[in-house]
Design a protein around this nucleic acid. Structure first.
Lengths: 144, 144
DNA sequence: GTTAAATCAGACCATTTCGTTCCGATTTTC
DNA sequence: GAAAATCGGAACGAAATGGTCTGATTTAAC
């Protein structure tokens, strides 16, 4: 129920990269300096993000990386899926069967839950995360 | 982004226990036989569910356990919270600070995401999971 | 009152996954 | 042509989880 640290770091890294979108290329070392994360960790995150197509990497000296898509077109769901794989609470949905072949009555209900969860994450674009102050003027419905 | 196996087993166990609600007491061994899970695993799950107040255990010979609340009043969120702890995607919300003291711009946005996730799980009561056939007449929007 | 059985509860150990780190391949600039 | 800087992948170590076992407690029966 808690996403991995890598996914968290990926969100932070993408948020930092979004600010450099206008400036052009950025390096992993620079992102590490801005976010305060270890450089190797940022490299690993960048690798996954690049493989997923969210980040475009340019090799060579003076190279760097930049967002492959506009910040508004990248959501939390995209970042999480890039690092964590498909958004599924259980492994039985992801093609892998349960260890026991019991007639799992709850198995058919997971897709709906997964879809609801993914929808919640897909509703937060990257542009929203770049803002310093969040937009939660109506916290009444939020009990967090 | 994927809940632990214990939480999955807890959901299955609670679903099985819900069917025995009318029959009165049930034992962990019986639930294990019905679900196909190992007996010790069910015992561990039952322990956590009892500690959370979702399941009432009766010690001694002829004892057993039964739902502490009506099945309709128990949701997926309750079961997940009983096993996994508070529903929070990041540890920074749960009182623990991030490893780095960077000005995390995404931190203020997690509560809204957590609330949305919890709401999705709270909308699935235990009675719904007991049904053999799920209610997913419109799988078009689900890409799982 | 005593014995016996059945239950849950907690603690221990092995396994897997995740996180971190390091080294190599590739590419551009001077 | 050489050098420098970058990303990409692989290996190691650590932490958390999953599974298992043994023990304490309680009830029922004799």
């Amino acid at each position: 129920m808690r996403l991995s640290n890598l996914a968290d770091y990926a969100v932070v890294t993408m948020s930092a990269a979004a600010r450099h979108c206008g400036g052009g290329r950025t390096s992993a070392a620079e992102l590490a300096a801005e976010t305060g994360l270890p450089v190797p960790t940022v490299q690993k995150v960048v690798s996954k993000l690049s493989a997923a197509g969210l980040l475009r990497s340019v090799r060579g000296a003076g190279g760097g990386l930049q967002l492959a898509r506009p910040a508004a077109a990248i959501t939390l769901a995209d970042i999480v899926e890039a690092v964590e794989g498909p958004i599924a609470l259980t492994a039985c949905i992801d093609g892998d069967e349960c260890a026991v072949d019991h007639t799992c009555s709850v198995k058919p209900h997971w897709p709906a839950v997964n879809a609801a969860l993914r929808g919640a994450l897909a509703g937060i674009p990257l542009t929203q995360l770049s803002k310093a102050a969040p937009r939660e003027p109506n916290p009444s419905g939020i009990s967090a």
